[in-house]
Design a protein around this nucleic acid. Structure first.
Lengths: 193, 193
DNA sequence: ATCATTTTTTAACTTAAGTGAACGGTTTTA
DNA sequence: TAAAACCGTTCACTTAAGTTAAAAAATGAT
């Protein structure tokens, strides 16, 4: 499990044994049961996550309805926006599967970064990469119809469609569950011809 | 003009005179005429921008149609995704007004960051903030209808609606120009009652 | 295994966005 | 300055998503 984290870090910087031990001493690894809520609306938090196994989601509750906007699976990093802005969260974060993840808080990161400037660099590169990816995802979302978005997701993250509930997937695609269901039937019809 | 840049930087780190001079010696400031294309599809680039005055936009050309996905105005920072991923650009960047901006390339940034570790920290914080903001914007986009998006924009960036062409605004809102026109008429009707 | 609950699908109807075309009004440019 | 190109709006029509409700299927608990 630790190797997964170190392999991930190795994509950005190379670590000495001393540095690896410093990380391990932080006791970052946690096992979390399906359904656990990591963050609630209104709460303040300093926690960031790295998913080793499983899946977590971000969702809002608007007019009593859950609106899922993001999923994080194996090898995904999540620093919730409210941690950056230091404001109360407007959304929930929960585990939709039994999940193994690392939990680090921003105080820890400040300390590690000042002790090992390498980490500062890794964090910068990682944030830049995630920003670039988010921008591209957003662009694709704007430039395509619900049906195209679904087909696109089928290409890029086929696992999600299996492991995630339809109504969560629907709001992730910016539509209602009934529309997703209909849209899938439409696609099947087309392929039959 | 330089003070605008230094005021912006001051939000993140404090600079000595020596550091300010190091920045000024880089010759970052540029004036660009309306209509200038800063980046074309297919090009590779290392340039990042900070807008001091004016407005630039990102757009794709899909099936011969321009699809505008982002606007950057006063005090906005833009590092195009293709600069981060070091891949050819899939989009264009152009000035829709006479614009004053700083242009810095990633080689310069690597050098400055290694000479002044402070800058590394600023870049990290800035990237994290922009990522958090982008995530929230994306969430709001998914959770709202075209009409709500338009009204939301009217609140948050009323200037954009004045200075940007309707068909560019439409694709920014994820709809067709005719739909934006109709939607505005609908809103006016409602307010008349 | 059965029942209760939740999730997904289907259907009928409403609403709004997409499409293609036409109309003035502006700006560009030859 | 006249012609061409472009832009925003409007209209009629098509297509697809939203809404409400109900049925069917899957899941979970006892």
């Amino acid at each position: 499990m630790q190797d997964i984290l170190f392999d991930f870090i190795a994509k950005y910087i190379s670590l000495t044994e001393e540095e690896k031990n410093a990380i391990l001493s932080l006791d970052l690894f946690h096992s979390v049961k399906k359904g656990t809520i990591l963050l609630k609306e209104g709460q303040q938090s300093k926690d960031s996550y790295f998913v080793l196994k499983g899946c977590i989601r971000i969702y809002y509750i608007i007019d009593g309805e859950e609106k899922t906007t993001a999923f994080y699976t194996e090898m995904d990093v999540l620093t919730p926006p409210c941690v950056i802005s230091k404001t109360p969260s407007e959304y929930y974060i929960s585990c939709i599967e039994d999940t193994i993840l690392t939990v680090s808080n921003s105080d820890m990161e400040v300390e590690v970064n000042s002790k090992f400037p390498k980490f500062e660099i890794m964090c910068r590169i990682l944030a830049e990469e995630l920003l670039a990816k988010k921008q591209i995802d957003f662009d694709e979302f704007k430039n395509s119809s619900p049906e195209q978005r679904y087909l696109n997701l089928l290409q890029k993250r086929p696992d999600l469609i299996q492991r995630v509930q339809q109504h969560q997937l629907a709001s992730y695609l910016g539509i209602k569950p009934q529309s997703l269901s209909r849209l899938r039937a439409r696609i099947l019809d087309k392929n039959k011809e």
